[in-house]
Write a protein that binds this DNA or RNA. Structure first.
Lengths: 257, 257
DNA sequence: AAGTAAATGTTAGAAAATGTTGACTTTTCG
DNA sequence: CGAAAAGTCAACATTTTCTAACATTTACTT
């Protein structure tokens, strides 16, 4: 494995799991711990990770990177979420993927006449307390750092359902790389979601465009709709619409909390 | 668990529960009490928590003086939970039903080498944050008041699993009425649990004896073990042991909170 | 082929984290 | 009140992790 490749993987592993032990990384990559230390030092200088005794964590994040990410780019996510909620009709069964934008959608959902399917623990928690909607949680293994449920059990339970609208927060989207997420298990769950859904809606800010971050979920054109912000380049829109993917670009105008 | 991670979890636990005993934290994180003292000292220097004799409390937060009886009940649940945890062996897959006693068991579980299956959202949440155990959540509809997952999906996912030990908090137990819980759906989930388990352990304080509270889960003698308190009448013990149900009666000794 | 720069491993000492012991303080309870 | 129990904390020993310096290997350049 190339050094740069190794650092990239290190970063990905850290992003996925929130924190990783130095010893584990050394074993994983079959290099000495010293090398890992040097990698970490390098990544820390770029502000990407934070060193802690015995391991490494995502920068600026303690233990739950998920919750921390929520505060970033909130206005944009909120605007995207508002557009997403506009697509929901009474009686629908909607799916919400784990993620910050989808959590925002959950908060804006109508209070009635809706069934929500999710594999995100925080979303289920929130909907349970703040609404009277029917909430269905997929089964599965708890994936700690994403606070999500994954694995064969999650996929199997999705196969039993019919979903009118699936809202999917994606980590990377690229004409060549397609839709990508951090981990293999999450990718598989999303594939099950796509199979169970009549219509799939990607929610992703424009920074995700051109990014290939991990395992591939599906081709770009598998989605029916993309909701993103105005910063998405015109040629990207052209590319998508040529493939029958409807694009909605929203303005993150007012940043009210 | 990394030191910094442990301190973060300590803070989280304190925020959740208002105040926590040093001895409990030491047990939970599997470190000496001295280490906990040092952690607390560090967090106190940052103004995040307040040190108290025997424990730690959230800084700047009013203390809620608790009712004696609640404390008493808690001590009993705690004692039952301790006996329950004593039955767990490394490598086991254990099931925890929704409930306060089982939540207490979750808090006392070893940190390693265990798979936990549950349909309780709070238990999954807690284990996810404070341990590194493999946590499997059954799927299903969210049952609001119990914060539990129920329904055909929950039953189906349990059917896929093998459980070494199932800890079941029961609402009522009676020679004639058998084991009873509040709702039909919960009863069905517990039936699925019993089918998937090699050994089932009832955890219930003695007030549950003679109570028939709702739908029947199974006959009394379906369980292998009952862990309860010393107030359970002798004839109840005799009745149960005649049917090959082992009874463990614990004393709520460590009463003071 | 020789030289150079990058990458990695090794070693040793520094720093951090943890546990243990024992003296001391606070709380509990007869 | 006064003694026993429980909790605190400082000092020391031990283990683990970090870092800097040096040696070695690998890959690229001239």
């Amino acid at each position: 494995m190339l050094p740069e490749e190794r650092r990239h993987n290190l970063l990905r592993l850290t992003a996925e799991r929130g924190r990783v032990k130095v010893s584990e990384l050394a074993r994983q990559f079959e290099v000495s711990e010293m090398t890992i230390h040097r990698d970490i030092q390098l990544l820390e200088a770029q502000g990407l990770v934070r060193k802690m005794h015995g391991g490494v964590a995502l920068a600026g994040v303690q233990e739950t990177p998920y919750r921390e990410r929520i505060v970033q780019q909130h206005a944009q996510k909120r605007a995207i979420a508002e557009a997403a909620v506009g697509m929901v009709r009474p009686g629908y069964t909607v799916y919400l993927s784990p993620g910050t934008t989808t959590t925002e959608i959950a908060r804006l959902l109508p209070q009635k006449d809706l069934t929500v399917v999710t594999n995100s623990l925080p979303i289920a928690q929130e909907l349970m307390h703040t609404t009277e909607l029917e909430v269905i949680l997929t089964g599965g293994s708890v994936r700690r750092y994403a606070e999500a449920l994954v694995g064969p059990a999650a996929e199997a339970s999705l196969a039993q359902l019919f979903i009118n609208l699936a809202f999917i927060g994606i980590t990377g989207m690229d004409p060549e790389g397609g839709l990508t997420v951090y981990s293999e298990t999450e990718a598989r769950v999303l594939q099950a979601v796509l199979r169970a859904s009549r219509k799939s809606v990607l929610v992703a800010d424009s920074t995700k465009w051109g990014r290939v971050m991990g395992p591939r979920v599906a081709a770009l054109e598998m989605a029916h709709v993309l909701i993103t912000d105005t910063a998405l380049p015109d040629d990207a829109v052209k590319y998508l619409e040529a493939r029958d993917v409807a694009v909605t670009r929203v303005e993150a105008s007012e940043v009210k909390a």
